[in-house]
Design a protein around this nucleic acid. Sequence first.
DNA 1: GTCGATGTTATCAA
DNA 2: TTTGATAACATCGA
Length: 275
Amino acid sequence: MPELPEVETIARGLRRALVGRRIERLSIQRDDQLRPSRAAFERLPGLGVTGVDRYGKHLFIELDDGRTLAVHLRMTGQLRIHAPADEELPHTHLVFGLDDGRQLRWRDVRRFGWLHLIETAAVGELPSLRGLGPDALAVGEAEFVARLGAVRRAMKPLLLAQDVVCGLGNIYADEVLWRARIHPLQRSDRLSRPRARRLYAAMRETLEQAIAAGGSSIDGEYVDAGGAPGAYQAEHAVYGRAGQPAPCCGRPVKRLVINARSTCYCPRCQKKVGA
DNA sequence: GTCGATGTTATCAA
DNA sequence: TTTGATAACATCGA
């Protein structure tokens, strides 16, 4: 569920709440998502938080002993700041006690997510970071266009694969392609330079607007570090709107399944080009 | 009981 | 070699 805008929103909330704080306690209810070991986490109390960063869909909580807690939320992971009296929701697996009396809680219904404690200097060696392209909000236009032209792939799988740019998931891949008026099966190497530049602009605009709205919450799954849902789902043009009129022309949004991923687009305004 | 879900990865096929 | 298709991970809810 969480893609770049949601992870960025969480990162901002965590930065506000955690930087300068010290971890005083850690209660581990379930340890199968902890890497490299449960024992490494048991030694966290006493450490301070010096920073919070994001790369693609990865979160990094930097600690004052030269290590970083790298986190991937995958489908249903949540990091939230709580008062100790707050009711503990089901599937809460970790509770960090902070020196301001508050708590950082990790929940993950499906448990696809993970937390990896690693030397900060070695973060780049994490298996899930290797092979990742530049962050979708940090990459420049020239590099983006060059990377698109360097492969010959369908745009939707390309945007989902994280190796050309990282941070987009199923929601924003569909929304970005709609904004750029590009067909999800358009081959990347057959995009004209103007269209590739339009895609870059659409990607930036979509992600920036989604962040400004606090991300997208579908079925109440995603909430930010304070527990608040996002508002961007109300702005979705095509994602999850199969059969409903597309905002561009009023034609019904069409749904395709690509690599077992649902894909929504406007059949009239998003045409394949370049034969 | 069946199906699908916003992420990633291993494996196999083309 | 490159790209795509599929299943798998675990759980919930329609």
